[in-house]
């Protein structure tokens, strides 16, 4: 099991059909009011207030509730009350399936327990970062999931090194890169030696030997591993309320002197030491 959400888990295992899930999502959409809708239902704002705030949001990167406070339409206490009411009346996907008759309450609890047990392997362990930023929890999770996927997908024994700040991204046999955008902006790099590339290829292709594989296929396996990690990072981030979009992976060829970290960016290096002496480096080039 990868990083999932509960609805996907139920459909993937054939416990509910995709049609039943769509019906439950539609019920959620009707029941779970967005901030503006809830504030209006509580009589705190008018449709005209919401329209003014939405117009202001076009040029301001702020949540609607905070913007309504800044515009003097809501007090901070009223904003918090709206959020509390949203939480208290939130209909979860499992509850929606029960209400629609697609699941019994007993089955819901049983499958929820199974789901939580499967997801427990992706609970983040603490990682110390040498920077203080509001997104540290996202970068810690990214590093942690990279390590967990090395165990889960590559099945290679390793021990993680200490995260350090770096001013230059060093060249290596190959680097796979993916861009992360949305609530955070960064480039994710996986830097591997020739030997490690073959280890990744053996694991991804499920072959004992990759000696005769074309270079294109060997490179692709490292890019695919980066893709699996970053997709699961996006999924975990969405559980944390952080939106991350990813682009398809690419191979990056650096000059011999490496790539100096550009102005306005911070680069974090996470070395990963493998049995046998190979080292993988995961680098996050973060836009400040």
């Amino acid at each position: 099991m990868a990083v999932n959400f509960f609805g996907q888990f139920l459909v993937e295992l054939g416990i509910v059909t995709s049609d039943a899930l769509v019906d439950a999502i539609n019920l959620q959409d009707k029941n779970n009011l967005r901030f503006g809708e809830m504030a209006a239902a509580m009589g705190l704002v008018t449709p005209a207030d919401i329209q003014r705030a939405h117009s202001a949001q076009m040029s301001r990167d702020m949540k609607l509730g905070n913007l309504l406070v800044e515009m003097g339409i809501l007090t901070p206490a009223q904003r918090d009350n709206v959020v509390v009411r949203q939480k208290n009346t939130h209909l979860y996907i499992g509850e929606a399936l029960v209400q629609n008759g697609a699941l019994t309450s007993e089955a819901l609890q049983k499958h929820l327990d199974e789901f939580n047990a499967g997801q427990a392997r992706y609970i983040s362990n603490g990682i110390e970062l040498p920077i203080a930023s509001a997104s540290n929890h996202v970068w810690e999770m990214t590093a942690d999931l990279t390590r967990k996927m090395i165990t889960r997908v590559l099945a290679l024994p390793f021990h993680p090194g200490t995260c350090t700040l770096t001013t230059n991204i060093a060249p290596n046999f190959m680097l796979a890169a993916m861009d992360l955008s949305g609530d955070v902006e960064a480039r994710y790099f996986l830097s591997v030696s020739e030997g490690l590339q073959k280890s990744v290829a053996r694991a991804i292709l499920g072959e004992e030997s990759v000696e005769y594989e074309p270079a294109e296929v060997l490179e692709d396996t490292v890019m695919e591993f980066a893709n699996i990690v970053c997709g699961n990072v996006a999924a975990k981030a969405s559980q944390m309320g952080v939106i991350i979009n990813i682009t398809p992976p690419v191979t990056v060829h650096l000059p011999k002197k490496g790539l100096p970290v550009p102005d306005g960016h911070t680069a974090l290096s996470f070395p990963i030491y493998f049995v046998g002496g190979d080292t993988m480096e995961m680098i996050l080039l973060i836009k400040n």
Binding site: Q8, E12, V22
Partner: peptide, 23 residues
Amino acid sequence: SLGGVGDKFTEAIKLGAKNVISK
């Protein structure tokens, strides 16, 4: 690999995908 992203999964199912398998 994006199967666990709730919005992506929901969009795919609503567009008629029969299932979504995560990598």
